[in-house]
Write a protein that binds this DNA or RNA. Sequence first.
DNA 1: CGGCATTTTGACAATCGTCAATCAGTGTGG
DNA 2: CCACACTGATTGACGATTGTCAAAATGCCG
Lengths: 240, 240
Amino acid sequence: MLNPLIRKLARGAELSADDRRTVEEAITDVRQIGPRQDLIREGDRPDEVHLILEGFACRYKTLADGQRQIMAFLVPGDICDLHVAILGAMDHGIGTLSACTVAFIPQTTVAVLAEKHPAIIRALWWNTLVDEGILREWLVSMGRRPADKQMAHLFCELLVRLESVGLAKDNGFEFPLTQEELADALGLSPVHTNRVLTQLRDDGLIRLSGKRLDILDLDRLCTYAGFDPAYLHLTKRRAS
Amino acid sequence: MLNPLIRKLARGAELSADDRRTVEEAITDVRQIGPRQDLIREGDRPDEVHLILEGFACRYKTLADGQRQIMAFLVPGDICDLHVAILGAMDHGIGTLSACTVAFIPQTTVAVLAEKHPAIIRALWWNTLVDEGILREWLVSMGRRPADKQMAHLFCELLVRLESVGLAKDNGFEFPLTQEELADALGLSPVHTNRVLTQLRDDGLIRLSGKRLDILDLDRLCTYAGFDPAYLHLTKRRAS
DNA sequence: CGGCATTTTGACAATCGTCAATCAGTGTGG
DNA sequence: CCACACTGATTGACGATTGTCAAAATGCCG
């Protein structure tokens, strides 16, 4: 399988064949991680960068009263913590949701890339900035969209993101999350999440069974959610 | 007055006297902007970077139905759009709230800095990453904190941020926003914002009159909000 | 003083959360 | 194969938070 990171970066930045090979070669330490494991905890200063190759992970914070807020879904091709080298300590945790395949890339390798392959670093920064755009859109969703549209918007976003790394087919994709985890991402209670999900199903917009999510009427779902993919900055080129 | 950007960057990164002078010299085009003016609109590709020197501005998005969500407050020392050069088009707007003094710095100047003063660029990236941390904390607030604690948390954050650029005194600062603008940042209705504000006042936690916000009992407000300033990454050094 | 934006208040409605029970699916051991 | 336990999904009843609408009060500025 083509490395999902390269596949994604190629959409937003210019990478030469040499750059791509360099990225491939940086991925040597690949590990299988079980579901619901922490990759990094708040306060850590990891000396490796983590790249998701398979599975779903998330950024999250846990409040003093035990509530959890998921701040981002990390899917194949996503880098978890490029910023730690600059920021110092992690201000949030990163954990797997499903079982994941994760590449551990030493900071020293990243530093070498920065030195010798500026195009790669630029592409990685592009990626980081897209993630920030996603974060902003989540904030908009939580602040100004009712729960049903917020959820619809999230599903639209995931479809586009997973398509960009070749993991969506026929407007559907693997979605190995419990409703409780989905609730933690939406800022809702699990019960209300269930009700909203039921409503979207009853409206014929989606089907969620087993661990697969199918979008039955993409146009209508996008309209319903007010989804405009511009914030994903994926328009430069088509997948090759 | 000491340039607030330099003051802030000095807290999180190492800048030599030469670096500081270089930053000073990059600020030549300084303009006065009235309140409620757009600096950049969604879709723009500005060829200047904007730096707030005085006043309050914000990042925002407007939905199709006219609702607005403010995604960040930009205060003196904050850079609005360092990322545009990498991302292409703006996926959100930036507008002033109060009257502002804004430095317009050409992208070419930034490119020269990147070439000749890596420490400055590194400091600017540090700043961008802190902004991302703030965004994550806002998401947590919106998702998992009730309105009163969310507002309390925001006030704690603003105090720390404004202190770091020398704009807070005696646990108070200029806060030139209407309640409607505050509501757009919190994701609340203006009416509910007013009620929560009244409650915080009645609890003796804050005073908000005219355009000044005073925190009357900082310890209690921080406890109430569950505020932990770690995410602001301002711990490396004291203000000099 | 008059005009206007902003703040404040009350009454009521909608959304969402909590609690508790039930149902469904899955895997285990006998 | 079935009994059992366990997790996750679903449903109902009810309560809390937040939104909406409309009016009144306040403050600011010419």
